Simulated assay, not measured.
Amino acid sequence: MQRYIHYAATLCTLLILLSSCGRYQASENYPPAGDEFVAANDLSQRFLQTLKDGGDASSVVTQLETYDPNVLAADLSNREQQLAFWVNTYNGMVQYLLTEDPALFDDRGAFFSTPRFTVAGHLFSPNEMEHGIIRGGENRLGLGFLPQFFPNKFERTFKIKGGDSRVHFALNCGAADCPPVEIYRPETYNEQIDNRVTKYLAKHSEIKTEGGDRVLYTSPLFSWFRGDFRDQGGIDEFLINYGVLTESDKDVSRQYTDYDWTLKTGIWAEE
Rank of each mutant, 00 (worst) to 15 (best):
M1A: 12
Q2N: 12
R3H: 00
R3T: 02
A8L: 15
T10F: 12
L14V: 12
I16Y: 03
S20T: 09
C21W: 12
G22R: 02
R23W: 05
Q25V: 13
N29H: 09
N29E: 13
Y30F: 13
Y30R: 01
P32I: 05
V38L: 13
V38G: 04
N41S: 02
L43Q: 06
S44L: 07
F47Q: 08
Q49D: 05
L51D: 09
L51P: 02
L51R: 13
K52A: 11
G54H: 09
G55S: 11
D56T: 11
A57G: 08
S58Q: 12
V61S: 04
Q63C: 07
L64M: 08
L64R: 10
Y67M: 02
A73D: 00
A74R: 06
A74E: 04
S77E: 05
N78S: 14
N78M: 03
Q82T: 03
L83W: 02
A84F: 03
A84Q: 03
F85V: 04
F85I: 06
W86P: 10
N88L: 02
Y90K: 03
M93T: 06
V94M: 10
Y96S: 04
L98N: 01
E100T: 12
D101Y: 01
P102M: 02
P102N: 05
L104D: 03
G109A: 02
R116E: 04
T118P: 11
V119A: 08
G121N: 09
M129Y: 02
H131K: 06
N139D: 15
N139M: 14
R140V: 14
G144K: 15
G144M: 10
F150D: 07
F154Q: 09
E155P: 05
R156N: 13
K161V: 13
K161G: 09
R166Y: 05
F169P: 10
F169D: 13
A170M: 11
L171Y: 07
C173I: 10
C173G: 04
A175E: 13
A175W: 10
A175M: 12
D177T: 08
P179M: 04
E182Q: 13
T188S: 15
T188M: 06
Q192V: 01
R196L: 13
Y200Q: 07
Y200R: 11
E206P: 03
E210M: 00
E210D: 07
R214N: 08
Y217M: 14
T218I: 03
L221D: 00
W224M: 08
F225H: 14
R226C: 08
G233R: 09
G233Q: 06
L239P: 03
L239G: 02
G243K: 06
L245V: 03
T246C: 04
S248E: 15
D249L: 07
K250T: 10
K250P: 03
R254Q: 09
Y256P: 05
T257P: 06
D258M: 14
W261R: 14
W268V: 12
E270Q: 15
E271N: 15
